[in-house]
């Protein structure tokens, strides 16, 4: 199998390139290989669409979590405050 034929049939390689392209860079050659693969492979087109969507959802999930402030319980805070005061008074 020639190198071009290899990628047009290889979904493992194609999904790797999809992921690399999503957050990094792929070479021009890889770009062309991926295009050709995707043209002929509907399963990887579904994959590409879903993996982009998943990345978006993960980012959203993380940012929502960051924006909902969690609270430490008061006893823990009080102990922590005392500990800090102790350390400060030592000096």
């Amino acid at each position: 199998m020639g190198p071009l034929k290899k990628i047009t049939h290889n979904c493992h390689k194609a999904t790797f390139l999809i992921e690399k392209k999503l957050i990094g860079r792929i070479t021009l050659r890889e770009e062309i290989e991926l295009k050709i693969h995707l043209f002929g492979c509907s399963i990887c087109r579904v994959y590409q669409h879903q993996t982009k969507k998943i990345a978006e959802m993960v980012r959203q999930l993380f940012s929502d979590a960051l924006n909902t402030e969690k609270h430490l319980d008061e006893t823990f805070k009080k102990d922590l405050q005392d500990r800090i005061e102790d350390e400060l008074d030592k000096n």
């Binding site: 430490l72 922590l80 005061e85």
Partner: peptide, 19 residues
């Protein structure tokens, strides 16, 4: 001002860590 750290930053840092 370390004496104010718990009041001002503790919950923020906790949220940062737990996520």
């Amino acid at each position: 001002e370390p004496r104010n750290w718990v009041a001002i930053h503790a919950d923020y840092l906790y949220t940062y860590a737990i996520t």
